[in-house]
């Protein structure tokens, strides 16, 4: 069974590129375009890892993070935040709320794939 990755991002092109990369790396990919949809998807099928943008419509990334981390059933889910350059406070807040890691926009796709593999304990080319 491939690892599952939930991409939570409202910008369609970023969703497109991340989803391409994750699939290419061998992961099964789900997409949520806002915070409410992300939580619904987590409820119905918790992913192994979530790539979570902070600035989301309806319910922002912090709210999603808080909700996920408050549920013991999802404690093993890895969460990597997509933060914006110059917004150190977002990164600090996210890590405080229980994120496992972060990448800063504009990020390198290689870094994202490497980080996802690292958190899921997957060797390159064996995913």
């Amino acid at each position: 069974m491939p690892h599952t990755v939930l991409v939570v991002e409202d910008e369609p092109h970023i969703v497109d590129s991340l989803s391409f990369l994750m699939k290419k790396a061998g992961f099964e990919v789900f997409i949520a375009r806002d915070g409410d949809a992300a939580l619904r998807m987590v409820e119905s099928r918790p992913p192994d890892l979530m790539l979570l943008d902070i600035m989301l419509p309806r319910r922002d990334g912090f709210e999603v993070l808080k909700t996920v981390r408050s549920n013991q059933a999802w404690r093993d889910m890895r969460i990597i935040l997509l933060t914006a350059k110059g917004r150190d406070v977002d990164r600090l807040k996210g890590m405080e709320l229980g994120a496992d890691d972060f990448v800063t926009k504009p990020f390198s796709t290689k870094d994202v794939v490497r980080l996802v593999r690292q958190h899921l304990g997957v060797e390159e080319k064996s995913a």
Binding site: E11, H13, I14, S17, L18, F20, L21, K24, M55, A84, K85, G86, K105, P106, F107, S108, T109, K110
Partner: peptide, 28 residues
């Protein structure tokens, strides 16, 4: 600044994808 970062991220991502993936279909 948020829009700039978002667009830069898209551009950087697709540029790297095009550079790193020789096996893309013509459509992709």
């Amino acid at each position: 600044s948020h829009k700039l970062l978002t667009q830069l991220t898209s551009i950087r991502s697709f540029a790297e994808i095009l550079q790193d993936n020789d096996d893309l279909s013509e459509h992709q």
